[in-house]
Nucleic acid binder design. Structure first.
Length: 593
RNA sequence: GCCCCCAUAGCUCAGUGGAUAGAGCGUUGCCCUCCGGAGGCAAAAACCCGCGUUCGAGUCGCGGUGGGGGUACCA
């Protein structure tokens, strides 16, 4: 919408330049005006002026009259420009051309657009491109802690963002239900817990037994041999081991379902480790046959010397181990068939891996191996969406082996208790059921927001105090703005006023709010392009702040009829924009709180 | 050794090569006869160092310093 107006201005500017014997500007960069309380669009003339000056100096052009600086050229434009109706004013200041919107036109354009599009306001046109996003990747037989949470929260938000931006998204999970960690768990269960079953909180119990397994292994020297032996029985599909594996695996899967439901996350397809183990081992044989992999068994493992294969002298991709010397499988054994399977099943234009930064080299090795195998087209479509880990205060790494974990269940329970206390205090007349509901929405928002509101490559430090602090720059603040907007609209009797162009002079806080609402579609595209939910947490917070400011300064229901009608529509648009951006971030927008 | 990431206010973080570097927490002082105070207003307070590229650098490049991570049979 604004692009059309900008294009028409660009045309005019170039016409004026041409008429004055000046070269045309090839491209324009438009930005929002950086002044608060006004809205408009602005383009810099420094770039252009500098180019002109350089070409003049080089004798490429002759200038019609001298001296001619950025300010002179800007003035020339301002004097000769025929402003489109959306704008009320244009000025040349400090090398910029600033176009101010006509408040009433801009208001109407933005607000009507939001209210017409409703829940789809901000959504982009379908791009006809499919993106598969793999995220979460939990290990069965292990705990689920706040470190894992960041992956799920980022992955889910990225899927929503890509969808909103216009992509066709496949949400994929990859559950690691085999491997050494599982065998350790089975070993411990057989030795110490045979016949026991998990309670209500299945994942915690599985994690406790896993941590215990690690401790016991450190204590007893014969344990490692026993675990090895068990792994071999597993590999030979020993029926007793398999039966126990199937049962215990199911406990973990049910626990994960509880967690995903709690978080409001869904998947379109789940890949399982065990389905890929045998194909992986077969693929390894294949790679040995083709001379890509080197079989060092039994003394060593099966490896791929990537740098040698690629003819690189400097160590870059190093060596990838794809099978243990005893023939049992590694991550890489299964990640290769997994990568292939994704393309065969879904043929995505992009295959995204949401995995923490520590696996960067490993993933580059996997992608390169795909290329070496002759699938360079697939390799090029793979993308590692890397993010930094969640640490505990003092830069302590969360480790499920050590048991230095903050479990998701504990975090959610604490946050819900805290939120419930606040709801009871703030809004005692709500029913118990609604209170519980609100507490849940607030708690989860508060937990998710900090995981999204810092850049992907920044370490998040988890501490209880700030996790349970609902004040300030946090999800509850944004949710509260939504509730306030909602409570105004609830008092409205009858339908929302019809669209119109208000003639009163708007307050700066109104103009600011309109401006921020209008940015949502662009920020969704940017967040999708850069894989950064951060852009949307920023906008969500700014929207909430602008709304609270507006709420403070501008009476809605008690204002003059024209003003009141205009503000009611603006409140409805703000509520919609806040709800939409929260929804994309995977955070609920409560009606009351 | 080689590779990657980080460094902005006391703390936690924003900051499309562009106009006066913004928030939250904490500190200090204010604002409910007013649509919900989980709110608002105000004050003090910052770009690790050096050299470059550029009309213009917190942002880009190179070199330091400090911290974190990765680097053949963990995941």
């Amino acid at each position: 919408m604004n692009n059309l107006n900008q294009k028409s201005i660009e045309l005019q500017i170039n016409n004026i330049l041409k008429q004055n014997g000046l070269p045309e500007q090839e491209f324009f960069i438009w930005n929002s005006l950086p002044f608060s309380g006004v809205s408009g669009t602005s383009t810099s003339f420094f770039q252009y002026a500098a180019t002109i000056a350089r070409r003049y100096k080089n004798g490429e052009i002759t200038l019609p009259s001298l001296p001619l600086n950025a300010q002179d050229i800007s003035n020339l434009i301002v004097e000769n420009l025929d402003l489109p109706p959306l704008y009320s004013n244009v000025e040349a200041a400090k090398g910029y051309l600033n176009f101010y919107y006509s408040q009433s036109q801009h208001y109407q354009q933005v607000v009507d657009n939001v209210l017409n599009q409703g829940e789809k306001f901000g959504w982009g046109e379908a791009k006809g491109e499919r993106i598969l996003v793999e995220f979460s990747q939990p290990n069965t037989h292990k705990a689920f802690h706040v470190g894992h949470l960041r992956n799920v929260v980022i992955g889910d938000a990225i899927c929503n963002i890509l969808e909103a931006a216009g992509y066709d998204v496949v949400r994929a999970n990859y559950i690691n239900d085999t491997g050494l960690h599982v065998i350790k768990w089975l070993w411990n269960y057989q030795k110490r817990h045979m016949g026991e079953r998990p309670g209500e909180d299945k994942t915690r119990w599985m994690g406790d037994l896993y941590a215990e397994a690690n401790h016991k292994m450190e204590e007893s020297p014969e344990a490692e041999a026993e675990v090895r032996a068990l792994f071999t029985r597993w590999d030979q599909r020993d029926e007793e081991v398999m039966a126990l594996w199937r049962e215990s695996r199911q406990w973990s899967l049910e626990g994960f379902d509880q967690i995903y439901e709690l978080l409001g996350v869904r998947f379109d397809h789940i890949f399982y480790d065990h389905e890929l183990e045998k194909p992986g081992q077969k693929l390894v044989e294949d790679l040995i046959q083709k001379g890509i992999a080197i079989d060092e068994r039994p003394e060593g493992p099966v490896i791929i010397r990537l740098d040698d294969l690629l003819g690189l002298n400097k160590e870059t991709y190093r060596v990838l181990v794809i099978l243990r010397s005893d023939g049992t499988s590694l991550y890489a054994t299964k990640d290769l068939p997994l990568a292939i399977s994704k393309f065969e099943k879904f043929n995505p234009d992009r295959s995204v891996y949401v995995i923490d930064v520590r696996q960067s080299l490993y993933l580059q090795q996997i992608y390169k191996t795909l290329a070496v195998m002759g699938h360079s087209d697939w390799a090029e479509r793979c993308y590692h969406l890397s993010y930094e880990i969640v640490n505990l205060p003092g830069n302590v790494t969360i480790a499920s082996r050590e048991g230095t974990v903050v479990l998701l269940e504990d975090l959610v329970r604490e946050a819900e208790n805290r939120a419930l206390d606040v709801v009871k205090e703030k809004n005692p007349e709500l029913s118990a059921e609604i209170m519980q509901n609100v507490a849940h929405m607030v708690a989860l928002g508060a937990i998710k927001y900090p995981m999204l509101a810092r850049d992907n490559n920044k370490i998040v430090t988890f501490d209880w105090k700030s996790a349970l602090d609902f004040n300030g720059q946090a999800a509850p603040y944004i949710q509260y703005a939504h509730v306030r907007a909602n409570s105004i609209l609830r008092r409205l009797e009858g339908p929302l006023p019809e669209s119109f162009a208000p003639q009163y002079s708007m307050e700066p806080s109104e103009v600011q709010l309109i401006d921020l609402i209008s940015r949502l579609p662009g920020e969704i595209q940017r967040a999708a392009q850069e894989y950064k939910p951060l852009h949307l947490t920023n906008l969500a917070y700014e929207l909430a702040r602008a709304f609270n400011d507006f709420y403070m300064q501008c009476p809605v229901l008690k204002a003059e009829p024209e003003v009141s009608s205009a503000r009611l529509r603006l409140v409805a648009a703000a509520r919609q924009a806040i709800a939409n951006v929260l929804h994309i971030l995977g955070i609920a927008a409560p009606e009351v709180m």
